[in-house]
Amino acid sequence: MKNTKGIFRGFTGVRANSKSLMDNSSFKENTTGYLFLLPALIVLGLFLFIPAMMSLYYSFTDYYMLTPDLTEFIALDNFKTLLSDATFRTSVGNIFQFVIFIMPIQVGTALGLALLVNRSNRGTMFYKIAYFSPVVMSLVVVSVLWLYILNPASGLLNEILQTIGLPAQPFLSSPNQAMYVIIFVSAWQGAGYQMLIFLAGLQNIPEEVYEASTIDGANKWQQFLNVTLPMLKPTSLLILTTTLIDAFKLIIQPMVMTQGGPLNSTLTPVYYIFRTGFTDRQIGFASALTVMYGGIIIIFTVLQRKFVGGDTNE
């Protein structure tokens, strides 16, 4: 939690500064402050704000990648097409299936792992590294490795299933199973990262609070419910928000493992946008998809903050 505290201190620091910005007497200091911001603003502007604004503009045009000079303003036509686009609807349905399942699974796993390794036993270092190692591997590599494990005819997983007497599964080649397999692989790959943040949060809960609760006669489970969880709230909120946004951006796993199939069951909006823009060359329409989907993500992030109670954590 030391880190988190540091971040909060940073925030209040900014706030204090912003007050002094209005103060004319420290003009010099203000200029220095803005100059400090400049590099970040330039980088963010070049790689985030300007491209985002360009996408917004392109979404109202018929920009075809091969004829940039013939681009024309077509107002809302892209959005009209989009509303009747069944593939986009399918992809949005798929991503909600993914989000609904991966959020509890990945965050729950991360919390469980953090609780497990949050002891000073010998060997916890090994587990920390073991749980975290998938995070540092490239997603493409992870996906390819799982492709081998999940191969229905010769994969390791089916060998194991058959050894213990269970029927072999089609996994990624079944439209009903493919998305769940991707959820599992993604949670396995990503949980280590959230585990580390949870761990930082856990280690920052003061020992006295636990002592006090023990004196009050709380058992381990009550301690977990009434001390650990509430004290983890700021950490949890950060994790829930970042995991949600990351989940909405799913593309690599289906791209490598299923190419969006079978029967579009793992086609995600970002993958669909990529395909429309870069394979089909319809930059204008892809931009409209991006704008629409960006809106959906913003709405759900705000809703989540409302429901999880993010506003109380200042």
């Binding site: 439209p175 079978p262 029967l263 394979t279």
Partner: peptide, 22 residues
């Protein structure tokens, strides 16, 4: 001109036909 889109539909047709139960 729109070969990528046409090709994808053809690809999907092959895949979908191999899911003979569906």
């Amino acid at each position: 001109i729109n070969y990528p889109q046409v090709s994808r539909t053809f690809q999907e047709t092959v895949t979908e036909s191999t899911y003979y139960e569906q």
